[in-house]
Design a protein around this nucleic acid. Sequence first.
DNA 1: CTTTAATTCTACTAAATTTATAGGATTTAA
DNA 2: TTAAATCCTATAAATTTAGTAGAATTAAAG
Lengths: 142, 142
Amino acid sequence: MLTQKAKYAIKALVYLAQNEGLAKTKDIAETARIPKKFLESILLELKSHHLVESVQGAHGGYRLLKKPADISLADIHRMFEGPIALLYCASLNFYKPCPDCEDVESCQLRRAMIHVRVQTLRALQDITLQRMVEGEGFARQE
Amino acid sequence: MLTQKAKYAIKALVYLAQNEGLAKTKDIAETARIPKKFLESILLELKSHHLVESVQGAHGGYRLLKKPADISLADIHRMFEGPIALLYCASLNFYKPCPDCEDVESCQLRRAMIHVRVQTLRALQDITLQRMVEGEGFARQE
DNA sequence: CTTTAATTCTACTAAATTTATAGGATTTAA
DNA sequence: TTAAATCCTATAAATTTAGTAGAATTAAAG
């Protein structure tokens, strides 16, 4: 399950993908029904990950730094939830061997979790901000 | 990511699938490196879900109630982690509409999460205790 | 130069969840 | 009657989650 924070991050990014130009925290918060103070910290985190940029002062706000087609749910998941895999030992980006595992290579649990991660990752990569805004399905293209 | 508890549950079930007849908590705990007291509560939970049965008293222990081919990671995940979907609104078994969602049917976020859930669920259903014990791959059969 | 509206920064907190542990009650075989 | 096992209730430390509070900083506009 996603945390509220990750869900809010996705909704904020979808808002930014739909509204070109600068968007104010206040407007995003009201439209997407996100607590404003919480959203502030989320936007700063998105900024630190170079997904958005900000303009300070009056008439300031946030905008996307990348094209909506270049931001996928896999990216957002990794930023706010960490590994897509169900165990660190099955992760691509957050790999850690289990402290108690005898042989990582032959571990059946790991093999199973890699199978799951491959499928989940593909599904998450299928979904870009652009596709979410377009409103079409998410079947994989050929 | 899985909780330790869910990971322990899987390891305990794999142990039971590998060892027919009664298995003692102590033996499972030592072999699978699970804190014994924690494992006790996990086995009781598995029992309440009718995945295992127990025999009390001296020479007691636990055994599987179902065939290893009939227990998948999807089942175990739902027992210990809840929804396989990333949001309740995209779940089959734990469906709840988002409290703030205007129209569940047209929600793009939900559509995306259903796409992810379909893929993850299939992957988790692919993996049965039998397959984990057999030690082969988990590619989908035709 | 002052006001206003926005982002940025630091700190704090309440609640829930996770990961167990403690200790005894109960059951059954030998 | 003893020993070995499951079963039950309660507790607790650590971590994570989901925020909130309040002030500092920045910049546009008059």
